[in-house]
Amino acid sequence: MIDYGHDLLFGAFITPTNSPPMHAVDMAIAADRAGLDLATFQDHPYQPSFHDTWTLLSYAAARTERIRLSGNVLNLPLRDPAVLARSAASLDLLSGGRFELGIGAGGFWDAIEAMGGRRLTPGQSIEALEEAIRIFRGIWATDATGRLVVDGSFYRVNGAKRGPKPAHDIGVWVGAYKPRILRMTGRAADGWLPSLAYLPGGPRDLTAMNAHIDEGATRAGRDPRSIRRLLNISGQFSATGRGLLVGPPEQWVDQLTGIALEYGISGFIVTADDEATIQLFAEVAAGVRRQVAAERG
């Protein structure tokens, strides 16, 4: 049993398809109306059937009222970190503090290179991400003295003006699986955002992964509880239960409550490209919130 004590967040993982062009926006609006906390989009700029995720996030933020938005996760190798930092702060300002920065080190290196991006080894990509996080925080730190200088091995910022100042403390959430990047997440990030589908052992794998994050945080002198643990999930609502996240909403409630309490997960983001799933997940969210609150006492 582990509980890092965060409020629970529930969100939608929406396919950023560009055909029809408004699908993803409509789903974000539906999630907003249903009362979910997060609308998130994956970011694959080399995928011609997807929208540019940054443009989509900005457009969808303008069309929603209350819901928070995030990349899930943004593709650092194809985005300039200083530009991204200013863009993120701009969107946070415009949206009244509704933006969170989900980011990944990159994965599909052939496609990244085809687009003109730089191929990095996994180790390099983790270092690059840590430098980028330094740049994000430096650009956002408008109260800090002097211009921003980051002299990294992968990114250099030489005396950039800081700002704009975001409307709220934007969370930097890292998509991570392997020990080294998990430790970096503990050291440098505000949140962790893996996908359940990529965990070969299922939820059980979360225990060891949490431990790597905790270790990274502790070594850096941070409280492990300061790192929020989120989880992308997918499943199916059906009348009869047939395993993890395949079954009626009540079964989802029990299973997600279990994952929240057992593994300290405080954010669940469900793959949802139709309004029915969004509605049902909003019901599940209410149930999990009730049960977790009861357990936490």
Binding site: S58, Y59, A62, S87
Partner: peptide
Amino acid sequence: PGQVVDGWTLLSWIAGS
């Protein structure tokens, strides 16, 4: 000169509003 607000983000928001 020295602008820090991202123009593309703002323009995308304008598109949405």
